[in-house]
Design a binder for these strands. Sequence first.
DNA 1: AAAAAACTTGACGATTTTTTCACGGCCTTG
DNA 2: CAAGGCCGTGAAAAAATCGTCAAGTTTTTT
Lengths: 231, 231
Amino acid sequence: MASRQTILIIEDEKNIGNYIETIVISNQYKALRAKNGMEGLSLCTSHHPDLILLDLGLPDVDGMDVLKRIRSFSHVPVIIISARTQEREKVEALDQGADDYITKPFGSEELLARIRTAMRHSVQLSNLMTQEQKYSKAGLEIDFDKRLVTLEGKEIHLTQIEYKLVSLLAKNAGKVLTYDFILKEIWGPFADTDNQILRVNMANIRRKLEKNPAEPFYIFTEIGVGYRMKE
Amino acid sequence: MASRQTILIIEDEKNIGNYIETIVISNQYKALRAKNGMEGLSLCTSHHPDLILLDLGLPDVDGMDVLKRIRSFSHVPVIIISARTQEREKVEALDQGADDYITKPFGSEELLARIRTAMRHSVQLSNLMTQEQKYSKAGLEIDFDKRLVTLEGKEIHLTQIEYKLVSLLAKNAGKVLTYDFILKEIWGPFADTDNQILRVNMANIRRKLEKNPAEPFYIFTEIGVGYRMKE
DNA sequence: AAAAAACTTGACGATTTTTTCACGGCCTTG
DNA sequence: CAAGGCCGTGAAAAAATCGTCAAGTTTTTT
């Protein structure tokens, strides 16, 4: 299923960093470590973490600056971790776009609960943000958002595997996808399937989509290589 | 800017309530007061506040129950205010859908900053949601505001879960919602439910809504994937 | 405290989907 | 032109999924 979510920990003190990393990892998240602000920023841009834990007391740049810079290009949820309990700091951080502010010392469970809360917010957002994407070509339309395939306006029923296949091809329209690639993509990397099963599924799909399955219009066979969908 | 935003304060101790109300009002919010859980719930349903400040230590109902009941029908941001610093409480409240947890004593500025943060989240959400007030299709009408379902004008009684299911589907009419998504949405992210329970509920719903449950008109099954409601 | 309603769980047949198997056509190659 | 590889197709076998009923448990109402 979906791969584990990544959390970027920006923290200069090794002990605390390790402590947090342990908590995070033992709860099925992937952890990324940065020991200063610059490193944190670059890891953020390169790895696109799902959440950031940011210590305000960093050696190089001010933690608040890091927050501002992150917010200038990303909406990733940020939880501030700080030893400072001064109200002014909290207010400033929250108003700069931090999603939460937690003061040391804190318990592991509380940290995890606040991580879950922040993730929840961001999932709700991203669920709604995803603008609809479609494949559309000469009467055939695939609405990936609705998981709906229509041909000349008429709804076409595809089974799970058929739909996965068509979407995979449509999302790579114009490109040849090799048998191996497709098999791994649909049946997973460990399945021991040969491409006989692919042939059967393609035949079924063509029967549903193509006017004349013998002379395909949408999905072409590249003999010995794979399949390609019309761009 | 539209009219001022309303904050519902559910707090039994008069002094603290007054303190909070003062803070809130002096910052251009409208304040609503409830001195116990039941009153809070009814004010919540009648006034649709933009945010709720909920004290956990209430005299009548358990504050956690109030939170659960609110979450059963609304996504309004809830900030828990509590004297109890026990981690278990915080974790439970956050996992029940609270958006933040702040411990007494707290400064006015921090409270306000956390209110702004919670509002920010909810504004982002509601901007995107642009929710329809009603679903209406061929005799079936769902009034989300009134929580009322009518078929050919006749009122249909749906249980809590049934209603949540139908409105979730209706709000995403046309889209296929996967079993996992639905389960997480209705039973929460931690429930260990398989979709057997979904099947039963769908059968019950169809018995109430569909003329011929064997050939559904409103709610379709996408085998292996999920359900979809007629757009 | 009893009764009713709502919710959950397990089992089973019917249907759909997925996989496997067998065969025939087409193209390339020797 | 015969052989061999590759692909499409039809049909049958195997597996998975779905709707439904019935029984058990919990919650809410009376």
